[in-house]
């Protein structure tokens, strides 16, 4: 009975998803498939459109994997992402805990929420201009302040120092995105039933306990979203490092894999094939890492449901079998 009802509605699932796939097929499919294919060819050069498949189809891939600059870029990307994600998510969780704890009654939190998101509104280009002005050398506001405070004697050239420029990029990323993450997390908390919180309150749970035992577990799907999108965004980091300290920074210290790909494809030689191979390698890495995250943070309820369904069908089969056996034995 119930199964029939499900079947009747199944077509709506297809109908609701069709617009997405149609739009994708029209606008994105060709570029994507084209990109994947040229990774196995010798295509390079801005106007070249004829290409040949390579004898060793993975030649570009082995070049990229063996290339020390790609490895360095990959290391940078991981470093820049991890070191901006940790402070960013910590700050966002802290703010979420403060703002959604009804007993704190933080005044003006609407105002704060709105303000914290503001750095995300301005374009990366503007941010880059502002920060390179702030860290100007030998004269610039940051150098002036540090010198006036007596922290440094000589002006410090931040933008030619590897570590300094990495830290600045991490700072900018955190600064730009903690507000976004906070807003997402808060909207997630708002989706949690208030009754649960009220019940916790009645039970006398402290704010800290409520947060860890109620908010976080109920926020898991949204946390997974934040983690996965930030991972994707982080491993595809491009704008700020590209614009802030041109094309890779001092001695390639802020060169991310996406800048590497961009340089391959658009700087002088137009090595589309190698850029494509590098893109695909990054794609595989992101898929694998995301899959692990999904597995670790999978929706336990859903998984449990699946298990129950499976067990039920198993049990049913078992029963059928037994019934068959029984009838068989009865027949005997």
């Amino acid at each position: 009975m119930k199964k029939d009802k499900f079947k009747g509605y199944a077509k709506w699932g297809y109908i609701f998803c069709i617009p997405f796939f149609l739009a994708y097929a029209i606008f994105q499919l060709y570029p994507t498939v084209y990109t994947i294919i040229i990774g196995f060819t010798d295509l390079k050069g801005v106007t070249t459109t004829t290409f040949h498949f390579l004898k060793n189809p993975f030649e570009n891939y082995s070049f990229i994997l063996g290339n020390s600059m790609f490895r360095k870029a990959f290391g940078n990307t991981i470093k820049l992402w991890v070191c901006n994600f940790i402070p960013q998510i910590s700050l966002a969780l802290l703010l979420t805990a403060w703002f959604t704890d009804r007993r704190f009654k933080i005044r003006g939190q609407g105002f704060f929420k709105v303000i914290f998101y503001l750095p995300n509104i301005i374009t990366a280009a503007t941010v880059a201009i502002l920060f390179s002005a702030l860290f100007g050398f030998p004269m610039g506001p940051v150098n002036d302040i540090l010198q006036n405070l007596g922290l440094i004697k000589e002006p410090y050239n931040f933008l030619i120092k590897k570590h300094a420029s990495q830290y600045i990029v991490m700072f900018i990323q955190t600064w730009q995105w903690y507000g976004y993450t906070t807003v997402i997390l808060i909207s997630g908390v708002l989706g949690i039933s208030t009754e649960i919180f009220e019940a916790a309150e009645v039970d006398g749970a402290s704010g800290w306990q409520t947060f860890w035992l109620i908010t976080i577990p109920n926020l898991k799907t949204i946390l997974l979203f934040t983690l996965v999108t930030s991972l994707i965004g982080g491993l595809n980091m491009f704008d700020i490092p590209q614009l802030f300290v041109f094309g890779g920074g001092p001695d390639n210290a802020t060169m991310t894999t996406n800048i590497f790909i961009y340089n391959q494809a658009f700087k002088g030689s137009y090595q589309y094939n190698k850029a494509s191979a590098a893109s695909m390698i990054m794609f595989v890495i992101i898929v694998v890492v995301s899959a692990i995250l999904f597995y670790l943070l999978r929706d336990k309820d859903e998984a449990a449901l699946e298990r129950i369904k499976k067990e039920a069908s198993k049990a049913k089969k078992q029963r059928d079998k037994e019934a068959a056996k029984a009838s068989a034995s009865a027949g005997e």
């Binding site: 499919l29 060709y30 498939v33 294919i37 106007t47 459109t49 004829t50």
Partner: peptide, 22 residues
């Protein structure tokens, strides 16, 4: 079938079209 047809078409379009434009 629909997807793969579209794919093949767009691919040929990509190579052939490019050549023609040179």
């Amino acid at each position: 079938v629909l997807l793969s047809t579209a794919m093949v078409a767009s691919l040929l379009m990509g190579c052939g079209g490019g050549e023609a434009a040179a």
